[in-house]
Design a protein around this nucleic acid. Structure first.
Lengths: 310, 310
DNA sequence: CTGTTAGCGCATTCAA
DNA sequence: TTGAATGCGCTAACAG
């Protein structure tokens, strides 16, 4: 019966048909739990996302899920809420569930856990696969536009928490781009915020400090849309006009950004692709372990009004 | 050993300690797959969301996940993408995974599937539990504000696809509120859109038609934030000012709504609560089957500028 | 091609 | 108190 149900070639056609039919009549459904026990394999892959609040995470998850579905895997989703212990707990929970592999957006799960792992939105600590945004190109686009099109020279940068791959890469690119343009960046112009989540407030605070400087910047680059929201609020509160008094551009294009006041010039990308690619890398690893790759997702500059255009 | 590891009272203390210690040294982890096979129970509950794009779904999922985690269950998430077949496929997939119960945002899985089910964002087709927003109160708040504070009499309504509980309840509430105010609503003022997802475009089209009317409305109520975005875009394209020419208010408070031009007056609620409550209802059902409840999540009116205030 | 058999790791029942 | 035997539903290896 077993051979018939999973098309082994060693079964006569007619026998198979008979079996399959009877199975359906009886409403038979193969019990994967028993199968897993026997084969010590698992139909699951695990995924740990940093939060469920940022709108990009939905599409990332969906992309991964779709790819895994095609590969015959079921996704086990966990949420670290950007907490170290929760992250670790999630991984160990997933291990206990005997997942075949892992998708992680971690900033520190160095210990190789003996499973195929693909990191997304962050560099792989070990020699695992990783999917990252084109952070350098993105920041170059953003800063280049401010520099070349609008001739800004006093540009401030609002970044995320240091230590995260994206934060580091974006900051480095910011500094590199400005120094290529022979512009010195005063250290007060660079503000790394600890908060990422929905803490636009930290962006708001940073703006206030920036504006209090003897020579405040004429343009602000933010590393995330959440920070950009904070900046816009801060500027509004300070009675500054965007982009006349201060231009604002952001990595990450938030929903409804075209309806903001002013419409936000931002970097857009397909979060779905991140999930898809990460899942694809993991599936490849599961099929046949090999040298892990690093994939970059392209970004695109959407020029709107907050930079001074239009 | 088994008795020792799960604190059966029939084990001498010292024996237990010895066993537990050795187990830890050996890095023993109980294999839930084998346990499930033996007990024919499952540590999983299933959840089917309509999409992963709308920002409310993240928090809904997180809320459910947190509650299930506390209850010792692992969430299996599926995405119907608002497609009937995918919805059915997801449910049957989850059944095949032997989930203990189900959280559904369905509009039609009438067939009782023999599992405890709690519906969210939609009424339970059978006699199952359900978590819904306070749709009627919400619309009353919205329309009441337009009526009483701003004295509008020509109010149009942009709704979601008919058949969904929320769509139907909101529409009914809209009509009821206006008729209580002795206002007749011309049928052209009521537009039910098929699209929900990210199809703000349908809202945009509807606005164009509304504006082309001999006596266009002076205020528009939208049933979702996505529709509101479309409306704002449509009004912008038509050169109308909000709220001077047309006031706009919306069910659902989108992210960054305070930074829109103009800031949107909208109904806010805690999506997290939806997930939490739904999960809680399901856990109760799992513990001891009983009469299913219907829970309503409260909504709150955030008055900003798009209604004419401020 | 088809039938039989022995585990997979755990829970449970029955003896000791 | 503890040990041993049985079976959950399926896979895999081995005879027929």
């Amino acid at each position: 019966v077993w051979r018939a149900l999973r098309g082994s070639p060693l079964v006569r056609e007619e026998t198979r048909r008979r079996i399959v039919e009877t199975a359906r009549e009886l409403g038979f459904e193969s019990n994967w739990i028993a199968r897993s026990l026997s084969t010590r394999s698992s139909p699951f892959v695990g995924m740990v996302v940093p939060d469920m609040y940022h709108p990009t995470n939905g599409p990332i998850i969906e992309g991964a899920q779709d790819v895994f579905e095609q590969g015959g895997y079921q996704l086990l989703l966990m949420n670290s809420k950007r907490q170290q212990e929760r992250q670790l707990a999630a991984v160990s929970n997933l291990r206990a569930h005997r997942v075949a592999g892992l998708l992680l957006a971690a900033w520190n799960t160095h210990e190789p856990c003996g499973l195929p792992v693909v990191y997304f939105d962050c560099a792989a600590p070990g020699g695992d696969g990783a999917v990252l945004l084109a952070n350098r190109e993105g920041v170059e686009l953003l800063v280049g536009h401010l520099l070349e099109v609008h001739g800004h020279t006093r540009i401030a940068y609002l970044g995320g928490p240091a230590g995260l791959t994206s934060s580091d890469e974006r900051l480095a690119a910011f500094q590199a781009t400005l120094s290529r343009a022979w512009l010195a960046v005063p250290p007060e112009y660079i503000r790394m915020q600890d908060a990422l989540m929905w803490d636009a407030a930290s962006g708001e605070r940073a703006v206030a400090e920036l504006l209090a400087l003897p020579t405040p910047p004429t343009a602000i680059v933010t590393a995330t849309d959440v920070l950009a929201a904070g900046v816009l609020r801060g500027l509004l509160a300070a009675g500054k006009r965007v982009p006349e008094d201060v231009a604002v551009v952001s990595f990450n294009d938030p929903p409804l950004s075209d309806l903001l006041d002013p419409p936000l010039t931002a970097l857009s990308f397909s979060p779905r692709q991140i999930g898809e690619q990460a899942a694809r890398l993991l599936l490849e690893q599961l099929e046949r372990p090999h040298e892990p790759e690093e994939v970059r997702i392209p970004v695109e500059l959407l020029v709107r009004r907050s930079c001074g255009c239009g």
